[in-house]
Design a protein around this nucleic acid. Structure first.
Length: 487
RNA sequence: GGGGACGUGGUCUAGCUUGGCGGGAUGCCGGCCUUGGGAGCCGGAGGUCAGGGGUUCAAAUCCCCUCGUCCCCA
């Protein structure tokens, strides 16, 4: 029997729960007195590093080199591409002073690194043999958000911005790279047990300067969608602005084709938000900072339990990230302590286990207790890790699929609610959450009408079959768009 | 851009109306007792009441300014 926790609000109260769990699980401290900025705490930072190491591995496997570019960008470089300037003019921090002296050239704090990178790319690239160029970095970036900021999800200092940038000789190659980027992100989110949909953003919602923008979205427990990754095909927009040219085999100098793709600490927030429960975090074992915790249950009149728990620790320490909790606290308090931190497996060691040379394993995801012989404990935990991961996947996937619905039509022009709106809004007009796939004719005016009610995510990236149904305007539909409410 | 609310030990908060010893909860430290789901008891540390100025015999409290945070509307 598992008791209900007292200190953490129930997850059904998601905003409160999220803020509290960040604090109680020692992920981050957002009491720093600056809007949109927070402090990563050791446990949270380790979780963040484990998550981005999954990405690091994937990018290395696919031939991306890790780099570091400066945070400060001279104004002249920042201002080279018109779409880009326009897209970021409202949210750039500018450094204007060095000490007391006003700077001759003001400096932007990067809101993303296209401009400094592409300035350097134009120096590095001379011939087709220099291509493709594929680099990435994990850095902080700054955006002067004017809307309400939220820990992990909308920040003024994004501390963990993974941005990859590639340069190619041909459009065909660059488009192939876009597909590879999508594949990399799929594998990344799969390994983190984050469910997603992939949508092609409509032209008016593309990254500034991009020819195509593809977005990964997940759905948070309150039903709103959260963009967790983007892949952009840039064409020659930036190569022309930054003069990224190469001499091709045919002796002709040509502008290169580019792509870029990014994710941020929103993935950390998503894992916390999607898998957590009333007891706190539930983490996939592969990224959990502590994978196994051993809690000895000692009695004054029964000596030897602590020694036995150390024996168990020695058995496990070379296989897992293990913590042996010898603090002088009662077992119950320790259970709550490690549960809120999402430790996947707890090992309880008391007099009974000591006598029988066994261990009691408790799964974080289901609280199920499993007894095992000490000799089998390593294999049993490995087995449990697999079970936990697939259980987490299964239960989040079935929830997620139930949140993505298909509609036959949107709503009539008179404003009368029809199919699609019923899926998103209840009888009282309250947002129910989720995503609806709706057939539309493809005229921008119709999309504009729809976007007065909901946010348009774009068309599904995956091939869709024959499109049926009717657009808001009454004409037969020719494509599908996904709509929702976004963060 | 416009409007509103708030700022008190680490965290949360009472006190402000009507000026008069800054109190509690939680967390932290020490001790006793205990340990199979946050137990209990005793003791203790911890404060620039956001900052500055003003009114007053006296300001967390009233007035002004600044800073910061949150919320609502465009």
């Amino acid at each position: 029997m598992v008791k209900k926790p007292r200190l953490l609000p129930p997850k059904s109260n998601f905003p409160e729960w999220f803020d509290q769990v960040m604090f109680l699980a020692e992920i981050a401290d957002f009491t720093y007195p600056l809007k949109g900025c927070g402090v990563w705490l050791p446990f949270g930072w380790e979780l963040r590093n484990n998550i981005f190491n999954v990405m690091r591995r994937l990018l290395k496997e696919t031939g991306h080199g890790e780099v570091y570019f400066p945070l400060l960008i001279p104004e002249g470089i920042f201002m080279k591409e018109a779409h880009f300037i326009k897209g970021f003019e409202n949210e750039v921090y500018w450094v204007t002073h060095g000490g007391l002296k006003e700077l001759d050239v003001k400096l932007a704090l990067r809101p993303t690194s296209e401009t400094p990178m592409y300035h350097m790319f134009s120096k590095w690239i001379r011939s087709h043999a220099d291509l493709p160029l594929k680099v990435w970095q994990l850095v902080n970036m700054f955006r002067y958000e004017t809307k309400a900021t939220r820990p992990m999800f909308r920040l003024r200092e994004v501390t963990s911005f993974k941005e990859a940038h590639t340069v190619h000789a041909t459009e065909e190659e660059a488009l192939k790279q876009v597909e590879q980027a999508v594949e990399i992100y799929k594998r990344f989110f799969d390994q983190l047990c984050i469910p997603y949909i992939i949508s092609k953003r409509p032209p008016y919602d593309r990254f500034p300067g991009a020819k195509e923008s593809i977005a990964f979205e997940t759905i948070l427990p309150d039903g709103r969608t959260l963009q967790i990754g983007t892949v952009h095909y840039l064409g020659q927009t930036f190569s022309k602005a930054f003069n990224i040219k190469f001499l091709d085999r045919d002796g002709v100098e040509k502008y290169a084709y580019q792509t870029c793709y990014g994710v941020s600490e929103r993935v950390v927030g998503s894992i916390i938000a999607l898998h957590g429960d009333d007891h706190g975090l539930v983490l996939p074992p592969n990224i959990a900072p502590i994978q196994v915790v051993i809690v000895p249950i000692t009695f004054k009149e029964v000596p030897g339990v602590e020694e036995y728990s150390k024996e168990v620790y020695e058995k496990l320490k070379n296989h897992f990230r293990v913590e042996l909790d010898l603090r002088e606290k009662r077992p119950g308090e320790k259970y709550y302590h490690w549960e809120v931190r999402g430790v996947p497996v707890r090992v309880e060691i008391g007099p009974e286990e000591m006598r029988s040379k066994t261990a009691t394993l408790v799964r974080r995801d289901t609280f199920e207790r499993i007894k095992t012989d000490l000799d089998d404990v390593v294999g049993k935990i490995e087995e449990l890790f697999n079970d936990i991961k697939s259980n987490m996947e299964n239960r989040i996937t079935s929830w997620f699929e139930s949140m993505v619905k298909k509609a036959e039509t949107f709503l009539s022009l008179s404003g009368e609610a029809k199919d699609a709106v019923y899926h998103l809004i209840d009888e009282n007009g309250e947002f129910k959450g989720g995503v609806v796939e709706v057939p539309i004719c493809g005229d921008v005016e119709c999309e504009m009408k729809i976007s007065k009610f909901v946010d348009i995510l774009g068309e599904p990236w995956e091939r869709v079959g024959e499109v049926k149904g009717m657009c808001i305007c009454g004409k037969p539909a020719r494509k599908i768009v996904r709509v929702s409410k976004q963060y």
